[in-house]
Design a protein around this nucleic acid. Structure first.
Lengths: 282, 282
DNA sequence: GGCAGCGATACCGCAGGGGTATCGATCCCG
DNA sequence: CGGGATCGATACCCCTGCGGTATCGCTGCC
């Protein structure tokens, strides 16, 4: 299979519409139809169930969609990492570290400071990203190493080292009745219909259904909380960045959050190894 | 980048010889030269340093070699898994389990028996393979799940669950002076110039240098030991399969061996999940 | 200095990828 | 119930680009 075929198939499988997929790929619709048919014939598998009005994935098609995305990520990573290795031209190459914007910021700061003080430290570029994006960035080569937070982020297929485990707090508007309590339980929080959790956009940029206001970043989130429109559960360390108009109260039975440093499994970079070593020794 | 280009590059990078690489690929040498040049131009990177007498990998080239192998494995896995999903045709698909030949055999037997007794058990095909092959089998889709042995096998990029940890024993000819001891230390074993460890062929089929006879499988290994030409360190459980003419003696300070069950990180198969669940409950 | 080995270049033929035009089926709407 | 709109498949054509052969240029070696 050629990556061209995989790209074409992924486009169709995502759009479920040959015309739109062709447009997205910048080609006409007939060659796309033909390529998919060839792919199906070569694999001996029907990938798409199509009538003249609708296109649907078969079982085999959804397997290929998942696998093709992984394979295309790997090819993209190969290209990106080779380009960067060439730029580095034998010398010390920089490292791209991905981290969720607004999370673990003092840990991140300490890590960067401590690592920079190492004798053979490489330059580190920090890539702040959205929730759940880190895995993708590592897999397609845009990042070399990332800070993840269990149990929220998936670490499947990555090598990791645990850095820190911390409790969680609920972040409430300053004047809220619960705000004065020394601690609360999950049940207390989930029984607050006036303070639902905000909804975050997924990878495709759309918001999930449900109650709760939409939020796109941490500034919006805290503003919503300060306005008494939402609450939020966050790791204890985020207390350091809180505004005066919101309050953090420990949630005793919320799952603990573990910050881990993760990197792609076949990474052979000395700089990544150094960064990981520094992080585990913090 | 197309997989054709990656395949061509890997061939040249492995052979370090355009003529042989072309032969291996079943094409003539000129198109191969051209394709590599195009790839280099497109990546903006010199991948191979070539004189008219010698070809060598550059820094960027060795990065691409590693990444390209991973990407090609992913593409191959996509193809294989799609084919198998199509054959399964919506029904329950079988599972391919890879295990080192001769290792953990009673554990494997118990796992297969117990899993087969589960209500929704899928057929399990056992793929016995050589040392260190399991990771490759999982990555390129020839196997769905594998039994690995730490610290010998690499689990990078795989999801794993620990099953069992056991001590190691040294396997000696029955009449050997150490054979009567209740236990030994590593130092005792390594000071036996008359009983070196056999050498195993690597992935490329060649034997590493060093003392010790060459062995290709367990039958040869045990025969060499029985003949008084070698000794071997193995997990305690391999005692169950020993011949009468060899003896196992615990090695107190040898590293413990952990048997783990491993599967590719994005595996969504119910059968693999069931097999893992069964294994952890044994 | 002649020769052998190897990668690069020049040139050619054709498979196949991409384009336009059009068909056939299906759904929608009046 | 018929006409139009929509969408994927098919027919056909063009031209890119892949693979082949022939040959060159360089290098190390006897």
């Amino acid at each position: 299979m050629e990556t061209r075929e995989l790209r074409y198939f992924v486009a169709v499988a995502e759009e479920l519409h040959f015309g739109r997929a062709a447009q997205r790929l910048g080609i006409a619709q007939p060659p796309l139809s033909r390529t998919i048919s060839q792919l199906e014939r070569r694999l001996g598998a029907v990938l798409l169930e199509r009538t003249s009005r609708t296109v649907a994935l078969t079982e085999a098609g959804s397997v290929l969609l998942r696998e093709a995305r992984a394979a295309l990520d790997a090819v993209e990573a190969a290209e990106r990492r080779t380009r960067r290795a060439a730029l580095a031209a034998g010398g010390q190459t920089g490292v791209v570290l991905a981290s969720k914007a607004g999370a673990s910021s003092e840990l991140l700061a300490k890590l960067l400071d401590t690592y920079a003080a190492e004798p053979d430290a490489a330059p580190v570029e920090v890539l702040l990203c959205g929730i759940g994006e880190q895995e993708r960035l590592l897999r397609d080569g845009r990042a070399d190493v990332a800070l993840l937070h269990l149990p929220f982020d998936a670490t499947a297929g990555l090598d990791t080292e645990e850095l820190r485990t911390e409790r969680q707090v609920v972040i409430l508007p300053a004047g809220h009745p619960l705000a004065g309590r020394p601690h609360v339980q999950m049940a207390d929080v989930s029984e607050l219909p006036d303070l639902p959790m905000p909804r975050w956009p997924g990878r495709d940029g759309t918001y999930p259904d449900g109650p709760g206001p939409q939020a796109r970043d941490h500034a919006q989130l805290y503003q919503l909380i300060a306005l008494g429109r939402a609450c939020w559960i966050a790791p204890e360390s985020s207390r350091a960045q809180l505004r005066d108009d919101v309050v953090a109260v420990p949630v005793l039975d919320a799952p603990a959050v573990t910050t881990v440093i993760a990197w792609p499994p076949h990474s052979r970079s000395r700089a990544v190894a150094g960064l990981v070593r520094t992080a585990t020794r913090l």
